[in-house]
Amino acid sequence: MDGLFDFIVSKYNYWGYVVLMMIGMYAMIVKKNLVKKIIGMNIFQTAIILFYVSIGAKRDATLPIIAHGHGDAHHAVHAVDYMNPLPHVLMLTAIVVAVATLGVALALTIKIYKQYNTLEEDEINARLRGR
């Protein structure tokens, strides 16, 4: 019983990210509205980012900022005391690029609305076939 509990505590984070990824993927595949599809894409992105960040977490470790002060004696830094900064760096830039791509996606949406006067995928398809 104790083993099962430990197993769940050590793994539920990954299950959470898989569930979020499923929500985003479902919205991208099934939803017909383009804004809903873009929201699904963003949820998918944040799920992947959550996965990377939870890889970087470390038990009994502190934030990746080394304790310092003026006039402190220089002491050795041990890797086990600090969280893994590498996934944080990769994901920090990924978030900013995500908002930039979001801007481009919304610009395309506005362009499509100007052309077809609708955001529903099936109505746009009907208009395209009708021509």
Binding site: K11, Y14, S54, I55, A57, R59, A79, N84
Partner: peptide, 11 residues
């Protein structure tokens, strides 16, 4: 690897 494992390959 378990969540928060200091010996995980990424760390």
């Amino acid at each position: 690897p378990a969540w928060g494992d200091p010996a995980s390959p990424a760390s």
